[in-house]
Amino acid sequence: MNLIIQKEKLYKLQSLIALFVLCIIISILSDKFLTVANGWNVLRQISVNICISVGMTLVVLTAGIDLSVGSVLALCGAITAGLLKNGIELPLQNLFIGFTLLGAIIIGLVFGGALGFFNGWVITRFKVPPFVATLAMLTMARGLTMLWTKGFPISNLGSNFDYIGTGWFIGVPVPVWISIFVIIIAMVLTTKTPLGRYIYAIGGNENAARLSGIKIHKIKLIVYTLAGGLAALGGLMVTARLDSAQPNAGTGYELDAIAAVVIGGTSLSGGRGSILGTVLGAIIIGVLNNGLVLLNVSPFWQQVVKGMVILLAVIIDRANAKND
């Protein structure tokens, strides 16, 4: 019995232990790692992944997956930037529609939620596997981004918008405050509301959840809509930080999000995991990315290392699932 209890404690602490060991190794290899400036830089960078990963966690808890978050991030960032800078021209009606900062932001977030809703609708209405449905959205959203931007960045968006990505508030970067707010809301949602219980129930056993009266389709629609909205929020943060909406923004972000979710202990089979675990996973991925850059590791090898980390995390997840 004591051995089982110790094993459970080790399983819960494995991500924290991995982060501690990773920090020690990088700090030994690079004297720039344990500096205040680099610490804030890491936190600012992982804020985007935290927002995306929280949405991904909600999806994975229902035994789903969302491969479109990177492309949705790029499209919503580009739409917000385009509306803010250029507005909408309707030559036939001799009409120009301008947008305030708040108006452009709201439309960007709503559009992200709408794309997520479309993912959920395709998955629930036509029984399309989440992998296929969101892979299709990945391609469509990336194509729409290229069409909207015509393949060119949309830059010089103004200091007020840039504040979202580069500003400071009470001595802390604004993106960090945004990610903290997202974390708190997600934790309350998953642990204190009926929606959170339904999400875990669906991932644990969808048939049992259906028989107990849970509206499976409605919950999945909500979950994918939230994932799309949070991807859009990440898009606003990236665009504001760069002061530019890049057509190829968000490439590979879905992999970092999935890695954060799995490393954080959320099972790809659904029904098991936590928001705090995902946050810890996102920190590990952020520290790993930062460490590889500080050590001047080739970007190509960085991809190899991250792929190996994801594979290892999935193998551990499968092993833990068998032992449950």
Rank of each mutant, 00 (worst) to 15 (best):
S71M: 11
S71W: 13
V72A: 07
V72E: 02
L73Q: 14
L73M: 15
L73D: 02
A74V: 05
A74Y: 12
L75F: 14
L75W: 05
L75P: 11
L75V: 09
C76W: 13
C76G: 05
C76Q: 03
G77L: 04
G77D: 02
I79Y: 04
I79W: 06
A81T: 10
G82V: 07
L84M: 09
L84K: 11
L84C: 05
L84G: 05
K85H: 06
K85P: 10
K85V: 07
N86F: 14
N86H: 15
N86M: 07
N86I: 04
N86R: 14
E89W: 11
E89L: 10
L90G: 02
L90P: 08
L90K: 03
L92H: 11
Q93A: 13
N94E: 08
N94I: 02
L95P: 05
L95K: 14
L95W: 13
F96G: 01
F96C: 00
G98A: 07
G98L: 06
T100I: 05
T100H: 05
T100G: 15
G103P: 07
G103Q: 14
A104N: 05
A104F: 08
A104H: 07
A104I: 06
A104S: 13
I105E: 01
G108W: 09
G108E: 01
L109Y: 08
V110N: 00
F111W: 13
F111N: 01
F111E: 00
G112D: 01
G113I: 07
G113D: 04
A114Y: 02
A114K: 05
L115I: 15
L115N: 04
F117G: 02
N119R: 06
G120N: 06
W121F: 15
V122Q: 07
V122R: 04
I123R: 09
I123P: 12
I123V: 14
I123W: 13
T124R: 07
T124Q: 12
T124P: 08
R125Q: 12
F126L: 14
F126E: 00
F126S: 09
K127S: 08
V128M: 10
V128L: 04
P129C: 02
P130F: 01
V132P: 04
T134Y: 10
T134S: 03
L135T: 01
M137V: 12
M137K: 11
M137E: 03
T139G: 00
M140G: 04
R142W: 13
G143Y: 14
G143H: 12
G143Q: 05
T145N: 11
T145D: 03
M146G: 03
M146K: 12
L147H: 11
L147T: 09
W148T: 02
T149C: 09
T149I: 03
K150T: 10
K150I: 06
K150C: 00
G151Y: 14
G151P: 14
G151M: 12
F152V: 14
F152C: 01
I154S: 06
S155W: 15
N156V: 10
N156P: 03
N156Y: 12
L157G: 02
G158M: 03
G158R: 08
N160C: 00
N160G: 00
N160Q: 13
N160V: 08
F161Q: 05
D162L: 09
